[in-house]
């Protein structure tokens, strides 16, 4: 059981890293990786939202949708669940912990319609994961995304000072760097043989 969860965690964080292997969530990845501070804030918010929305979606999918034979509606319902949950978290956080809200509030809105957040419940329903496995997948994906963001932010902070040829300055060089990191992440592919 525990071994199984470990496999899911490692697989989703490294081998099937959402940014470098599945090429999802690139808009946020490029958007907030300019500064380390925002990258760390985004990573934390992202992981938290991912785990909770994975759990919520699992509950709704397995307890309501599957018994009613409405599996085909999952994408629409998952979007609704994530958006609703993020909105609720936004409201509650504002009251309970204004400091945390000021740090993470701006990222919460960005997350609402993010593709990784949607991908996690979809994958866990496709793979017919149980509840613990779904949460582990959320946690692993969050860790993988955080890793990607933090690696990218540290590289981009240095790129600011590097002597990049004019046509490659800004986004182009960021894409090239991402491609190189993705190539490096390919090295994880043999880590676990399922």
């Amino acid at each position: 059981m525990l071994e199984d969860l470990g496999t899911i965690f490692i697989a989703s964080a490294l081998i099937n890293n959402f940014v470098f292997s599945r090429y999802l969530g690139l808009c946020i990845f490029f958007g907030v990786s300019k500064k380390m501070e925002t990258a760390v804030g985004m990573s934390m918010t992202f992981t938290a939202v991912m785990v909770i929305s994975a759990a919520l979606s699992w509950l709704v999918y397995n307890l309501v949708m599957l018994p009613a034979g409405l599996g085909f509606l999952k994408i629409v319902v998952f979007i609704g669940i994530v958006a609703g949950f993020v909105q609720g978290a936004d409201t509650v956080l504002k009251k309970i912990n204004p400091t945390l809200y000021h740090k993470l509030g701006i990222y919460l809105v960005l997350i609402t319609t993010n593709c990784i957040i949607l991908a996690v419940p979809v994958i866990s329903s496709d793979e017919k994961y149980n509840f613990m496995q779904a949460i582990t997948l959320g946690l692993g994906s969050g860790a993988g995304f955080s890793l990607a963001l933090i690696i990218m932010a540290s590289i981009r902070e240095r790129l600011e000072l590097a002597n990049v040829p004019k046509p490659f300055q800004g986004m182009p060089i960021a894409f090239i760097v991402t491609g190189l990191i993705a190539l490096a992440f390919l090295g994880f592919s043999g880590l676990i043989t399922v």
Partner: peptide, 23 residues
């Protein structure tokens, strides 16, 4: 029923949260 239910559930929860946690 499902979509309506999900919508209504979130609507009620959010409305309650907005009232209860109003800043």
């Amino acid at each position: 029923a499902l979509m309506g239910g999900v919508g209504a559930a979130f609507g009620i929860v959010l409305a309650y949260a907005a009232k209860k946690f109003a800043v």
